[in-house]
Design a protein around this nucleic acid. Structure first.
Length: 264
DNA sequence: ATCGGTACCTGCACGC
DNA sequence: TGCGTGCAGGTACCGA
């Protein structure tokens, strides 16, 4: 579900919890803690005040003053919900001094971790695509010899781009997903960066893409899915040239593209 | 040191 | 109705 635009939308909708204090922690599904001891996590969190909610790529960090961070990743199906009823897949419930925060995740690929320090997993991420310059992006592309689609999905290259927005960006840039990163001209590389910025910005404006179950912390769906030009449109006519959108596997992920508009 | 492939988990749509 | 198959926004880890 969640790539940069969805995680950004969730982060924005979570701002009401800034300044709130954690009164109680209920952990129903320990898998989401990735091996940490549930009791210890609870002890670390209870009584802390949430001082900031910030996104890094696809991660959300809740700062707890100087005590540390709650490090959240939504995986494929994770949801953070303000209030509401706990369900079958609710793994963590934070009771706040006003309201509550639920972490829901049917596939359990997400994670809920506590870290005393700024987390290494987050520190290792590549730059934010919306902050890096096109020139810098083009140079970085040159230093890798891989399929460009794989590179876009690599979070240590740029953080936050996932399968939907990689496909949509490559389409807008007219670049084939199998194109080799180091073979792209600087101009096409800069064009790809512009396409990424455009797609991500448009998607954030639309509140993200709700393919099946994505909603923000207030339960609102996103609307960017109606603007997808290639993602999950296999067989449909290309909006530019009319030839059918094709699908192939790159890095074991479905990749949707127009063979006529997107060149290697 | 980088890679591509596989594993992790649940739910849904589809064909038979 | 039920069963098997394939697919789904994610990353971690393995061996080459």
């Amino acid at each position: 579900m969640p790539e940069l635009p969805e995680v950004e939308t969730v982060t924005r909708s979570l701002q009401p919890i800034v300044g709130r204090r954690i009164l109680a922690v209920e952990i129903r599904g320990a898998r989401i803690l990735r091996g940490a001891d549930p009791d210890r996590v609870a002890v670390e969190l209870v009584g802390r005040r949430i001082t900031q909610v910030k996104r890094y790529g696809k991660f959300i960090l809740l700062s707890l003053g100087r005590s540390g961070y709650v490090v959240l990743h939504l995986g494929m199906t994770g949801r953070l919900l303000l209030g509401g009823e706990a369900g079958k897949h609710t793994h963590v419930i934070l009771t706040l001094d006003k309201g509550s925060l639920l972490f829901d995740d049917s596939r359990q690929f997400g994670s809920f971790e506590f870290s005393r320090e700024f987390p290494a997993r987050v520190a290792k991420l590549g730059p934010e695509p919306l902050e890096i310059g096109s020139q810098e992006f083009a140079l970085a592309l040159k230093s890798h010899r891989v399929r460009v689609k794989s590179l876009l999905l690599n979070q240590s290259f740029v953080r936050g781009v996932g399968n939907i927005y990689a496909d949509e960006s490559l389409f807008r840039a007219g670049i084939h997903p199998l194109a080799l990163s180091h073979r792209l001209t600087a101009e096409r590389a800069r064009g790809l960066h512009r396409a990424i910025v455009d797609v991500l910005s448009d998607a954030i404006d639309a509140g993200g893409s709700s393919i099946s179950d994505y909603v923000d912390a207030e339960g609102r769906k996103g609307f960017f899915q109606v603007q997808h030009r290639v993602y999950q449109r296999t067989g449909e006519p290309c909006v530019v040239c009319g030839s059918p959108i094709r699908r192939l596997l790159v890095a074991q992920r479905s990749s949707h593209f127009c063979a006529r508009c997107q060149k290697r």
